[in-house]
Design a protein around this nucleic acid. Sequence first.
DNA 1: GCTTTTGCTCAAGCTTTTGTTAAGGAGTGT
DNA 2: ACACTCCTTAACAAAAGCTTGAGCAAAAGC
Lengths: 225, 225
Amino acid sequence: MVKVHLIEDESEIRRLVAEALARIGHDVETSATALEGLQQVVSTNPDVVILDLGLPDLDGGEMLKMLRAVSAVPVIVATARDDDSSAIRLLNAGADDYVVKPYSVEHLEARIRAVLRRGLTSPGEDTITVGEIVIEPGSREARLGEETLDLSPKEFDLLLMLAEKMGHVVTKREILAEVWREPYGGSERTVDVHLSWLRKKLGESASEPKYLQTVHGVGIKLIAP
Amino acid sequence: MVKVHLIEDESEIRRLVAEALARIGHDVETSATALEGLQQVVSTNPDVVILDLGLPDLDGGEMLKMLRAVSAVPVIVATARDDDSSAIRLLNAGADDYVVKPYSVEHLEARIRAVLRRGLTSPGEDTITVGEIVIEPGSREARLGEETLDLSPKEFDLLLMLAEKMGHVVTKREILAEVWREPYGGSERTVDVHLSWLRKKLGESASEPKYLQTVHGVGIKLIAP
DNA sequence: GCTTTTGCTCAAGCTTTTGTTAAGGAGTGT
DNA sequence: ACACTCCTTAACAAAAGCTTGAGCAAAAGC
């Protein structure tokens, strides 16, 4: 889930946008003032900040500078009208993108995705990304968003295999063959247990799945939620 | 083998990149202009397009829009030195990724792999479509228009089998043999029940059939209404 | 038009599959 | 040998799915 922080002084707009973003699956937090926004960004560490210009307590350029000073989070600024010159100025001042008010939520969503994608394309070479999960086979590291996942060898191999076949159902026997290298003899229950552990570390459970979707009678698949 | 189409106006760069990509095992075709590129993409249907910006005959955004209009191929744009704003614009306009010139071939290759990997899940190779029904054997997902159908294993297998023999009548015994893998012993009633459930989930009933057409005395067939 | 056959649907009971926890054992490094 | 992590197995709980039989509806045959 993408954590979005919205800084907007008009309460009505704030509510509308926050609800719309939440509805399409984002984790939304809001602030009404620049000062509050700064505090919140530092403490909650969002994935992207949407910053309305024309806040009562601080000039947009100043605000941006301060945000940049405290965090490397991508910032999308919302400018009043097509005031191109100020938009460009802000982009140079460290904004990552901008939308012109009044903006549609779809438009905003496109910007959010673009900004996040830019952030994601920089890391390693053959990393596999599934939603918030980032897997680096080379270093055998996996992350869930910012947090590094502390996985056991089998858990990592299991996650990697599922990620390589992302979206495709994999049977437990196939898992046993590839991860355990025991096409016969191995117990499928072992896979179940490891899946359960993986689920726990991914912050989900079988009854409330996000990434690991069991396909009853067949196997399991890893999907981007 | 991955078929890559490179659109780049500078002949020297074009030659170098094309050779490098060919050396690592890709099937490379090139175009020097936007117009030629469009034609080639339509006729040769490559797996991925690498689009250089700053073509002489067409603006990058325009070009991308036209490419998108004629094909769903993934497009990687190559932008001049950190011209972020245009990169952002192009990503939103439908580009799948971008590289900054001058780029290394390894870097480009990594992007190609990433883009292809992303693409693998979306269109699905062996999906079967019958009217509004879309079946993806790999992920074992079936949709009716936009809605995902929540099918049990047997229901899915049943639908899949009928879809594979779309338009042909299948006897219940054949269904028992293939879906239930019980050529003998199985009761045809069971098939009836599953068919009934399938009908319900497809939004139809035996008295008002759309997809599942019973052929009295013989069996059943799946048709596009 | 009546009988027979075939097909449809419902609901209850049953089996299989899966999720999760906990306990023990193998292996590794100190 | 000890502490450690990791893996496997067993056990129970819960969920999902399957089968069955009966009643009713529809079609075919006479």
